[in-house]
Design a binder for these strands. Sequence first.
DNA 1: TGCCGGATCCTG
DNA 2: AGGATCCGGCAA
Length: 197
Amino acid sequence: MPRLARKFFARDTRLVARELLGQILVHLGHDGVRRSGRIVETEAYVGPDDAASHARSGPDGRARLMWGRAGVAYVYLIYGLHHCFNVVTERDGFPGAVLVRALEPLDDTERANGPALVCRALRIDRGCNAVDLTESVRLFIEDAPRVADTRVRMGPRIGVDYAGDWAVHPWRLWIADSEHVSRRSRTGSGYNPAMLG
DNA sequence: TGCCGGATCCTG
DNA sequence: AGGATCCGGCAA
């Protein structure tokens, strides 16, 4: 199965977040086991002014990878015990990334309906940080059929209430009929992008 | 150098 | 509702 190439990621972050739905995230662990899952929920973090984004700490800060080459993994530790997996987007010099929030489990993978559970299920940790997904043989995203617009929902990002006006942007995207999205996406409302005026 | 708070999850 | 538990950023 072909993997997603750099030009897929080097676009508007919200578009990448939308088109990542349905694609297959694959990690070959140190134990040689292939673990994978279909991406069913994402969030977009875009631009230098997004108050919810780690990119706010600047091009030399914690999330400097977000300012760099699209298609690279940005993995960080949160709350001292969990990992979150992102893919860098946009052109060089403009920060952006998509957080993978939930997977439908495929090969040797346990439930992954939350960003930290995604990393736990696929054994992704900071050893995966800065890996180029377009070149790595152990961490990449396979190109799977595109999900129809009618199945997509969008709503505000989770856990970023501190970000003021930026918290209300509907930059969380998920597959409406998936059993494997996070609790908030399964029970929350959300709306269809096609219904936008 | 010290402190604060977080793109979370689980248990009670 | 609260605890677990580490690290980067910012204030002093």
